[in-house]
Computed example of a mutant assay.
Amino acid sequence: MLYAIGVIETYGYPTALAAADAMVKAGEVSLLGITQADSGHQFVTIRGRVGEVDRAMEAGIKAANDCPNSGQVMSHYTVPHPTENIESVLPLHFDENSEPFRV
């Protein structure tokens, strides 16, 4: 099955956590992780079927922007059907922590 990938960049960990929570509740998606960048930026990455990722991304963006105090989405992007090259180069695969939650 072809999986889409969705990534939301937020400012602050609580905002990333709010986005991740909303994403896994809104669509049948797997959370691949929350990755810390620099200067307080976080990346929330999910995988699932295209329609499910789209629905989850909408919910995650709304939840992050509604997060009290410093909630803010910096950027976001959905890759509908990533090529093997993208999957082999970037850390977008299921790992031992996310595998049990694969949808």
Rank of each mutant, 00 (worst) to 15 (best):
1 M>Y: 12
1 M>P: 09
2 L>V: 14
3 Y>Q: 15
4 A>V: 11
7 V>R: 11
7 V>F: 08
9 E>S: 02
10 T>Q: 04
11 Y>L: 15
13 Y>C: 00
14 P>T: 07
15 T>F: 09
16 A>M: 04
17 L>E: 15
18 A>R: 06
19 A>H: 07
19 A>W: 04
24 V>Y: 00
27 G>L: 10
28 E>P: 01
28 E>Y: 07
29 V>R: 12
33 G>C: 09
38 D>W: 00
38 D>M: 09
41 H>W: 03
47 R>W: 05
48 G>V: 13
50 V>K: 01
50 V>T: 07
51 G>Y: 01
51 G>L: 06
53 V>R: 01
54 D>W: 03
55 R>K: 15
59 A>I: 06
60 G>W: 07
60 G>D: 03
61 I>N: 02
64 A>N: 00
66 D>L: 08
67 C>D: 03
70 S>F: 15
74 M>K: 08
77 Y>E: 02
77 Y>V: 10
78 T>F: 02
78 T>Q: 10
78 T>I: 15
78 T>A: 09
81 H>Y: 08
83 T>I: 05
83 T>R: 06
85 N>W: 06
87 E>F: 14
87 E>N: 13
89 V>L: 13
89 V>R: 08
90 L>V: 06
93 H>E: 10
95 D>R: 03
96 E>C: 04
98 S>T: 13
101 F>V: 12
102 R>Y: 10
102 R>Q: 11
103 V>T: 14
103 V>R: 05
